[in-house]
Design a binder for these strands. Structure first.
Length: 851
RNA sequence: GGGCGAUUAGCUCAGUGGUAGAGCAAUUCGUUUACACCGAAAAGGUCGGGGGUUCGAAUCCCUCAUCGCCCACCA
């Protein structure tokens, strides 16, 4: 056995271990257990953007998945962690457009085909860098199954989905109001809009007999309807459908009164005019009352000819000029300059959204959402933490039809073919064919591409071969757990649920784990521009992958919504890894011994308890708690106490057995170092595929009082250490102690306490109480009178504190009696007895102090 | 506007009805050959404020405050 170095070096081990795992085929689902019909454990990696790099959110998420996957693999389940990447249409599109811009070109200059070629080159060049970064973290994905949302098979799945939805009548084309981003020239989903509060003047104008307010006078050219609440007494004289003439920007208009419930009577004058083409609420009102609509602003954000003299102007420039003209016409009633309203911005690129009525493709959600709601309600799909269940259901209940086409070139093109010249014109109807292949005749493909989420919604089954009924699909679908961030709960998770149910005929996953958002320690979002970003690869470089993983888990709990990341946790985890390493070094150096001590029995039974607790915690996804429990056990019990004993006495085989159990329990959390040490201790099989079964279980049938004896031992050693400091006795000098009859101590007692046990209690001995089981006396010539005085004061203080507590508890017991459950009262009484015993100990000690 | 979450030691956080916990930092001591990426000891908290339920509340309920997030988008 080669000697271990004094410190663990992650860099010298991680790469080699990873290669070994990969070469062994351990990352692939085990063929034997599959054949034996064992139920597989399956996790889909939420496909990161192919052009992305690993950030702390990924590191957290990937660690959680890897822990679950490794743990299930060790339980002998066929385990599949399916990796892959997403084509990231919008960000990649922007990258390519920017590249072209730098060359002084536009995408139109080079044409669609050349553009697609360029993107393919880009994908080729960047590769799936992020997946390789995951390997650094130790992710045990089945790389042989890696997929990309734009690979040939995946494109087929996407097309098939479109076709099936269309056949079922879920996909329709309709003129609807959508979020148009003039900057990037595409529609944007509701979920991908950010609202920013901005100050803008709120103008109030005279409009016929009414006063109307608006922050957007530039949209008001075509307004011909005034809307008010039917119950608004102020306007009771006006009836629905009444008409009147109003002086307006470009001359007189004939306007009509509309009564609608959606009007807020308390806002402004309670009357508004509507611009259905450019406002969602107005659009809905117009639809309800079947009112005509007219476009005022074009797709570039410029005013159309309806604006008369303002035609062709950008809206931002036109706004004050229009207000000015209305003022000159004497129509401006007032301006509120402090008015605040929300401006809709595109998440990506931050273009200001201009709602437009456009002919678009939609998925009718009415039936799909019911299916998804049902499986959330009956718990087939479970959310952790459970509060997300309600969020999910509420969102689903209110979901609108899904606008699925985007006006960018990058992405999955719609399998829709238009008769030449028909697309985008008034006579669209009936002039298209939905088909993967180009139909015979003069057809051209719809220029639009699909929303990225349309394709990612298929991830759990498309990656397994759907629509073909492949072996993989039959074996691994539905998957077990989805681990994801809450920001894509609606965008992605919800859509996977209904897509899975509708297309693959089953839920896509059973449990959805929503992990916290990783923030910088000061609570700010992690971002490069703020300088708050932390690069997980740098952490791995500096502290090792195991420490990075363990540190993250040590800090994490699924109950958190955000996790303020403290890099200190990683350093601390590195120390822990090193501790583990050095325990192994010590055990290496021990000669074999077989006699069993109470310490051996104690540690074996502790290990058994811990392994059971860890299993329970992991079943409940309490990964952070499991990590904390393990660290505490290894460091505080195993290293600080047991190892100190077993280095001189006891059974080395139990020590090594329990240590092997520790390596197993820690392996899901710290895969590299545990694998290195496992191999080092002579195992021929690999830890990654070893069984989640523990040696200590067979050796832990210790007598019940073993634990009590060890407690006594530990508190005795601690008490002597405290007393030593209290009485000013240096560590160098050995103190004499008397231990009462019948108390068994491991031989190591004298060594660890720096004490010598003397046969009988001496009159001159100074005494000191210990927490359990009687009084322990200690003697040393170094104890001075001043030290004794100090000690006495301290004992007095303690006695007082306990007396106070006894008074309090006595009171509680008397009030509890007859009211609280009997066992609870008994607990309290036991506590009282315990307190009184402690007080007696202290008083005894106090009495024996010879000054 | 609606909803959710957080508020516990200097910092990051555990702890869901029974004597307030960990890691890190700060303090004191210790070069005991596994580890100074260590060990030992001691210190540190009216559990955000107020009210209620209960024999008993960090924990359950109400309320207020502060911070954060999600949803909705109001002319």
């Amino acid at each position: 056995m080669p000697a271990l170095s004094a410190q663990y070096s992650p860099k010298d081990n991680e790469e080699a271990i990873y290669k070994k795992w990969e070469a062994s085929g351990a990352f692939q689902p085990n063929a034997d257990t599959l054949k034996a019909g064992k139920k597989p454990f399956v996790v889909m990696l939420p496909p990161p953007n192919i052009t992305g790099v690993l950030h702390m959110g990924h590191a957290l998420q990937d660690t959680i998945m890897d822990i679950l996957v490794r743990w299930h693999r060790m339980q002998g389940e066929p385990t599949l962690w399916m990796p892959g990447t997403d084509h990231a249409a919008l960000p990649t599109n922007k990258i390519i457009v920017d590249q072209l811009f730098a060359e002084g070109k536009t995408k139109e200059d080079i044409g669609r085909e050349a553009f697609i070629e360029k993107t393919e080159e880009w994908y080729e060049k960047t590769g799936a860098l992020i997946l390789n970064q995951m390997k650094r973290l130790g992710a045990s994905c089945d790389w042989s199954r890696e997929r990309f949302t734009m690979d040939t098979k995946y494109v087929q799945s996407v097309n098939e989905t479109f076709l099936q939805y269309y056949k079922k009548g879920y996909i329709y084309r309709g003129a609807r109001i959508v979020n148009w981003d003039p900057k990037t020239q595409t529609t944007v989903s509701d979920l991908e809009i950010d609202y920013k509060t901005e100050k803008a003047p709120l103008y109030t104008f005279q409009y016929g007999p009414f006063q109307i307010s608006t922050s957007r006078p530039e949209t008001k050219f075509g307004d011909k309807y005034v809307v008010m609440h039917p119950d608004d007494a102020r306007y009771a004289q006006y009836k629905h459908g009444d008409t009147f003439t109003a002086k307006w920007i470009n001359g007189e208009v004939m306007a009509t009164v509309i009564k609608d419930d959606s009007i807020d009577m308390k806002f402004g004058t309670g009357v508004m005019t509507i611009t259905p083409w450019h406002d969602v609420t107005d659009f809905e009102i117009a639809q309800r009352h079947k009112l005509p609509m007219e476009q005022i602003i074009d797709f570039e954000g410029k005013l159309l000819p309806i604006a008369g003299e303002f035609a062709g102007m950008k809206i931002e420039a036109a706004r004050p000029k229009i207000a000015e003209k209305l003022e000159q016409m004497g129509l401006l009633v007032s301006v509120n300059k402090k008015y605040e309203h929300n401006v809709a911005l595109n998440d990506r690129g931050k273009g200001v959204i201009e709602p437009q009525v456009m002919r678009q493709w939609f998925v009718d959600m009415s039936k799909l959402k019911e299916e998804a709601i049902a499986v959330a309600k009956d718990g087939q799909v479970r959310f952790v933490p459970s509060r997300w269940k309600e969020h999910f259901i509420t969102w689903m209940e209110n979901v609108h039809d899904w606008n699925i086409n985007r006006q960018i070139w990058l992405g999955h093109r719609l399998p829709v073919w238009w008769k030449k010249g028909a697309h985008g014109t008034e006579n669209e109807e009936g002039n298209f064919v939905v088909s993967v292949e180009k139909p015979k005749g003069d057809y051209e493909q719809d220029p639009d591409t699909l929303d990225t989420w349309f394709s990612s919604a298929l991830w759990p089954f498309a990656t397994l071969g759907w629509p073909e009924q492949t072996e993989d699909l039959k074996t691994f679908y539905p998957t077990s757990v989805l681990v994801t961030a809450r920001e894509i709960l609606y965008l992605w998770v919800a859509r996977m649920v209904f897509s899975g149910l509708e297309l693959a005929g089953n839920i896509p996953f059973k449990d959805v784990l929503i992990h916290p958002v990783v923030l910088a320690k000061n609570g700010q979002r992690m971002s490069k521009s703020l300088g708050t970003g932390v690069d997980p690869l740098e952490l791995i470089e500096a502290h090792g992958a195991d420490a990075t993983r363990f540190g993250l888990m040590h800090q994490m709990s699924f109950d958190m919504q955000q996790m303020k990341f403290d890099p200190e946790a990683i350093r601390s985890a590195q120390n822990f890894a090193n501790k583990l390493w050095n325990i192994a070094r010590l055990l290496d150096g021990l000669e074999d011994r077989e006699q069993v001590t109470i310490a051996d029995q104690w540690i074996a039974s502790r290990a058994q308890e811990i392994s059971q607790e860890v299993s329970v915690l992991l079943t409940e996804y309490k990964i952070g708690e499991a990590a904390r429990l393990l660290q505490d056990f290894v460091w505080s019990d195993f290293a600080d106490w047991y190892v100190e004993i077993v280095k001189k006495e006891g059974s080395t085989s139990i020590a090594r057995g329990v240590f092997a159990d520790i390596l197993k329990m820690l392996h899901p959390f710290m895969p590299f170092i545990t694998e290195v040490l496992w191999e080092h201790s002579g195992n021929t099989d690999m830890l990654i595929t070893s069984q989640w079964k523990f040696e200590s279980h067979s050796k832990s049938d210790a007598a019940h009082d073993t634990v009590q004896q060890m407690d006594l031992f530990r508190s005795a050693v601690s008490a002597i250490r405290s007393a030593r400091i209290l009485f000013g006795v240096s560590m160098g000098s050995t103190v004499e102690v008397y231990i009462p009859e019948g108390v068994a101590m491991p031989e190591s007692f004298e060594r660890m306490a720096h004490a010598r046990i003397v046969g009988e209690k001496k009159e001159t001995m100074r005494s000191y109480p210990i927490a359990t089981g009687g009084v322990l006396f200690l003697h040393s010539d170094e104890i001075t009178s001043e030290a004794l005085e100090k000690g006495r004061a301290l004992l007095d203080a303690r006695a007082q504190k306990i007396e106070a507590e006894i008074t309090a508890v006595t009171q509680i017991v008397s009030t509890m009696e007859g009211r609280a459950p009997e066992e609870k009262v008994k607990e309290k009484k036991d506590q009282l007895v315990e307190l009184q015993k402690q007080l007696q100990d202290i008083q005894d000690s106090r009495a024996l102090l010879v000054l």
